[in-house]
Design a protein around this nucleic acid. Structure first.
Lengths: 144, 144
DNA sequence: AATCCACGTTGTACTATACAACTACCTCTA
DNA sequence: TAGAGGTAGTTGTATAGTACAACGTGGATT
């Protein structure tokens, strides 16, 4: 059984390796929707629409970044804006039919990739791994 | 106990969330050395020097990307090049004294951050989490 | 020697990102 | 109710990271 420090070291190394690779892998697998666009579109779908500001706050992105990402998604016809009648400043963002479709495709294909990677894991291990990841991310959010 | 699919779904979500955040977090914590530069420099340190081509192959980066990263590290005085006397085309890259110093600092501070995030984990959980991450990354390397 | 291959650099282009300045609009207060 | 101040979003500008293609130089093979 390795000492605590060794495990932490491994976790650090593996998380770093993963982070380094993730975007490129995602981009290779889904040229039509980057990791960030995917995430934003998924959030819109999940929340049944929200504001650019909410996306920025939720994902710790600058509002200008979100503005441009959304502009790109709109240009692709994946997102539409509906001005809030209550407050003319606000645009509520929604996936379009087409956007929802693409999102569904990418989600399915991502899900399949994960299933393949995890195919030979048994159910207990999967469950524990999922729990650990949630715990780790929660701690990271808490501590910055 | 969640079903297999739910665990996979959680793993996917959490890995994605982590990947999205990682670079920005690293950049905030260590403005002096990006996640990529850090990784490259650490590899040089670890391997006691290697070629740009080796870095590119190991990290799946284009050689031009590595070339520019190394150029930047050299400009900062963190890396030096030694032309291989056996083959004039080859430059063996090494961290400088200064580079090794900075690397050590960043490593220490990253390690501390991980220790903080994982402070309230018990030893068994840490060990299992480390094992799972290694296994996951190995599978990802295998399957692309 | 001629050809081919390996190593690295440079030109070019694109994406993601931040910060700052700006416009338009809302809200609150004197 | 007019002005002050705050909020939502866009645009200008700059930077980092990345890839691909074209190239130069030097080693290896035939």
């Amino acid at each position: 059984m390795p000492h605590r420090d060794e495990s932490v070291e491994t976790i650090q190394q593996e998380m770093t390796a993963f982070a380094r690779r993730a975007r490129a892998t995602a981009a290779r697998m889904h040229p039509e929707l980057s990791l960030v666009s995917y995430t934003l579109l998924a959030h819109l779908d999940d929340q049944q629409g929200c504001r650019a500001t909410d996306l920025a706050a939720h994902y710790l992105l600058d509002k200008s970044t979100v503005s441009r990402q959304i502009a790109a998604l709109e240009k692709l016809g994946f997102v539409e804006r509906r001005v809030d009648p209550e407050d003319q400043r606000v645009q509520v963002l929604h996936p379009t039919e087409k956007g929802a479709q693409v999102l569904a495709n990418v989600t399915a294909s991502r899900r399949q990739a994960f299933h393949e990677r995890l195919a030979d894991w048994d159910e207990d291990d999967l469950n524990r791994f999922a729990t650990y990841l949630r715990r780790y991310n929660a701690a990271q959010e808490r501590l910055g």
